[in-house]
């Protein structure tokens, strides 16, 4: 970012998310927004992570707990084709993790209610294929 002099920026050290006026922005996905260079979307916090979440679509029930709890809007939910009662329809579903903005806090895995979990925290350097292949089995309720 270009370093500017004291008289060259807005007072109050405020930062604008967009350079232009925007309309209806809540209905536009992050990747389709024309964020200004000052918006935190332009910065990565990936290097903060020690552990990363891995998403396993096979167990996910689309409850969106992780989406609500994620402090960095890094759970990606998008329209995708799903099968319901034999019919294929478009529905908002979990599609994965935004690894650029995920800082690895683990809240998503912690709040995931499925058994086994649909999100697991693993070492940052683990390979997704290996983790998915060794996903834990259903624990079941203790008797």
């Amino acid at each position: 970012m270009e370093l500017r002099g004291w008289d060259e920026f807005e007072i109050g050290s405020v930062l604008f998310s967009f350079n232009e006026k925007v309309e209806n922005i809540p209905n536009v996905q992050q990747e389709d927004r024309s964020y200004s260079e000052n918006n935190s979307f332009q910065a990565s916090v990936a290097h903060w992570r020690v552990e990363k979440p891995i998403f396993n679509v096979d167990h996910c029930i689309d409850c969106f707990f992780c989406w609500i709890y994620c402090p960095d809007s890094s759970i990606l939910a998008r329209e995708k084709e799903v099968e319901k009662k034999g019919e294929k329809i478009m529905e908002q579903s979990m599609v994965g993790i935004d690894y650029v903005h995920c800082k690895g806090c683990g809240v998503c895995s912690s709040v995931c209610p499925t058994d086994p979990k649909s999100l697991l925290m693993v070492d940052e350097h683990d390979e997704e294929e290996r983790v998915l292949a060794n996903w834990p089995k259903k624990e079941g309720k203790e008797k």
Partner: peptide, 27 residues
């Protein structure tokens, strides 16, 4: 620059380190 202007979303309370803080305080 009100935060309730949804056409121009703005962040108050940003963090600046040694490369920006001085200029803001000087202004």
């Amino acid at each position: 620059n009100p935060m309730l202007d949804f056409e121009k979303p703005v962040t108050y309370g940003s963090q600046t380190e040694e490369d920006w803080h001085f200029e803001h305080k000087a202004r």
